[in-house]
Design a protein around this nucleic acid. Sequence first.
DNA 1: CAAAGTTTACCGACCGGTCGTTAGGTAAAA
DNA 2: TTTTACCTAACGACCGGTCGGTAAACTTTG
Lengths: 197, 197
Amino acid sequence: MADMKTTIKSVSIDLFFKKGYFATSISDIAGGSGIQKASIYYHYASKEDLLFHILTSTMDDLTSALKQGLAAAQGIEQRMRAAVRSHVCFHLERQKENFIANAELRGLTADHYRSIVNKRDEYESIFQDLIRQGTDEGVFADVDVKILSYAILTLCTAGATWYNPNGRLTVDEIADIYENFIISGLKQGRFERPAGR
Amino acid sequence: MADMKTTIKSVSIDLFFKKGYFATSISDIAGGSGIQKASIYYHYASKEDLLFHILTSTMDDLTSALKQGLAAAQGIEQRMRAAVRSHVCFHLERQKENFIANAELRGLTADHYRSIVNKRDEYESIFQDLIRQGTDEGVFADVDVKILSYAILTLCTAGATWYNPNGRLTVDEIADIYENFIISGLKQGRFERPAGR
DNA sequence: CAAAGTTTACCGACCGGTCGTTAGGTAAAA
DNA sequence: TTTTACCTAACGACCGGTCGGTAAACTTTG
């Protein structure tokens, strides 16, 4: 019994994911929602407004999921593991929205673009702080913070591109693989040696 | 004194990169090339044909760069390092085309889409073979070949999204960072220990 | 409690504009 | 005389968005 505004949004997510924002017409969305295209404008001001709503809620949920995931974790390695896991799981569980969020930013007006990029920057900075802390503590190798944060984020983000919910691996299994890969890449050989240096 | 066909292609690459394939009109391309839009059709059969030409040449050059990079390298670790380096450098040096190749596949007809995806699969399989060989030889940890190959490729591909040619780091420096990060992630602690186990 | 007013959620018809593409023509080069 | 490389003009399709209207649901009021 979802209301029409929610239906329109979810139909749009499906279509934007499948065909892309520019290739999806208001008529397509209306047809998928079971109403006439003029009625879309009762619920959303414009096609771009609809895209902006999708991206905003996705980014907000993404960030709050990360903060929630970090709240419980202690110690820099465990915190980074929690962050990676949160990032991966969110992207795989809400694959379509995240795919759109990474592919259709160009559909936004300048103001809305800024708004979303600001949210993304805030999210990224959490990861960058974790990396910085890890290198300061000597747990991670002395890596380039910017590049490595991009690497970690795009790595997991890319999962939303190829992930198949009916595929061979579960979300948790994929998260395990990424977690180990990334932590190894951050440590770069700094594993606890049998004895002193 | 590039001929007009080449000019049109390179103007299209610039515009597809900046505004996206669907948001770029034939008029835009014609304007940027200094001719009328009808004249585009003397050189290319359609807008989609133009996109297909761009993607085909990009994929072909990408694969031959990889094969060339691998020809000189010996030993699985060195071969993987060479592969990563080739991939990173190609993506950063031909940033725009690679960005398009990863973002605009949806603009293709079914036949052309298949053609490009086949080329991409062939390219991926080279990386998958390298990973498989590395795990067989015990140089790399026992990782999931499919996922790790996607990880490696998307990692470097993402570079084409954020790379700034006038930025802080050179292509070679970025390639170094990725090379070490990826090799560490593949080895997952299997570094040569000071002495016997 | 019923009549009157107001709001909600939708519709069909239409608009100006842009799109990719084609037809037919032309002037210079081969 | 044919080919090359472009042009002007126009085509039909489709796009996002607006307009005026309407039936049903709520809210207010006598």
